[in-house]
């Protein structure tokens, strides 16, 4: 049924999309203009959505698309544009500090990759149960095993909303 052909395409797609993820995330931290940074971050998250689709995690793909790209990054963009910081006036750190930052991050990357090397070859990621990441299956798990954390997360969101409103509104009495 052409399954092997499909999976083969899947694999080369993974490497291409992984390259795009790394490329765009480097652009996020190097772009001078913060608005460009956010736009590159949106592209990065889009590649993450494609990763989720490749793993057939359809629910997470949709949630990533709607919540991250649709809500969180638009919130970033609005904040940036509302307080009018989309100009290239960011004071640059001294070169040595930047170098130390990149060096530290590189050391972290090398350490992680080296510890991975010691494991040796790994098994491929295979989807045994094709409807693992579908909404029906995840909903069953979420509302059986994880019902209490789910309810607590609603309290968390409520308190975050109250806190955000409290912090961001101008206090006319005390100010």
């Amino acid at each position: 049924m052409g399954q092997g052909y499909f999976v083969n395409i899947n694999m080369s797609t993974f490497y291409f999309i992984a390259f795009l993820s790394i490329f765009f995330s480097i652009l996020v931290i190097t772009a001078k203009n913060p608005v460009h940074s956010i736009l590159y971050l949106i592209l990065t998250f889009f590649t993450f959505t494609i990763h989720y689709i490749l793993m057939n995690a359809q629910f997470l793909a949709i949630v990533n698309f709607i919540v991250y790209m649709g809500a969180i990054l638009v919130l970033f963009l609005y904040t940036l544009m509302l307080i009018n910081l989309n100009k290239d006036s960011e004071p640059v750190k001294p070169f040595m500090v930047k170098f130390a930052g990149v060096f530290g991050g590189g050391i972290l990357m090398v350490a992680l990759a080296a510890s991975l090397k010691s494991i040796g070859a790994s098994n491929p990621v295979i989807l045994q149960n094709p409807d693992l990441g579908l909404v029906k299956n995840l909903g069953k798990v979420l509302f059986n095993e994880f019902l209490l954390p789910f309810e607590i997360s609603s309290v968390l969101l409520l308190s975050a909303m109250v806190g955000a409103v409290l912090l961001a509104t101008k206090d006319t009495k005390t100010a």
Binding site: V7, M11, N123, V125
Partner: peptide, 13 residues
């Protein structure tokens, strides 16, 4: 065929 062609876990890590 899945086993032969799927992406190794290491590459995701």
């Amino acid at each position: 065929t899945n086993t032969i062609h799927a992406v190794p876990l290491n590459h995701y890590i």
